[in-house]
Amino acid sequence: MSGMRVDVKVVMLGKESVGKTSLVERYVHHRFLVGPYQNTIGAAFVAKQIQVGEKCITLGIWDTAGSERYEAMSRMYYRGARAAVVCYDLTDKRSFERASFWVKELKTNEELCQIYLCGTKKDLIANDRHLRQIDYHDAQDFAEEIGAQHFETSSKTGNNIDELFQKIGEDYMSSEMELMPAEEPGVDLNQKKNSYFYSCCLSN
């Protein structure tokens, strides 16, 4: 049933260099780039089609600038988002504090937005346990408290990343089902012509 086009706005939030872009890059292109500029890989906007059950939905993933100087503007980015991936660095306590700031913002401003708390750089602590600064259970408790999902991911190995975005898609579909009952498929106006030139990745 590809006739229905569904767009879900997913916004990435998190402090600079927690690896928001790497996460997206890994998810969309299945690669991890190493180099001196690790915090700058990937593009800022990507659209990715995923299959949830029988439906095909498009995740429009919005990367945001994490610097504190743009903090006042972050509300513009997450307006209307159905999912927010709030990232923190498992090895950086400050980034977790910042993450809770965004969580608070989202809770007050965007009720419809489902929050996904995401600890990044899991591969670093797999090598050296002492690097971990945020306890798994602390984060888990925090997530439960705010009604969020919690994930720990590694963009280097790809651990847990597909699961994260798949979960976003599933949650979206189930919330949509609650909102409105299944509708009949529409009739294509241009059936005689080839009308599918609106691909999901190019909506300009």
Binding site: D7, V8, K9, A44, F45, A47, G60, W62, R69, Y70, A72, M73, M76, Y77, R79, G80, L202, S203, N204
Partner: peptide, 25 residues
């Protein structure tokens, strides 16, 4: 409205709004 909320155009437009707001403040 859907174009502003989703899609590439919407993303860049949001960035422009942010830029304008940043310059103002």
């Amino acid at each position: 409205p859907s174009r502003l909320m989703t899609g590439e155009d919407g993303y860049y437009f949001t960035n422009l709004c942010c830029a304008a707001a940043f310059i103002e403040k």
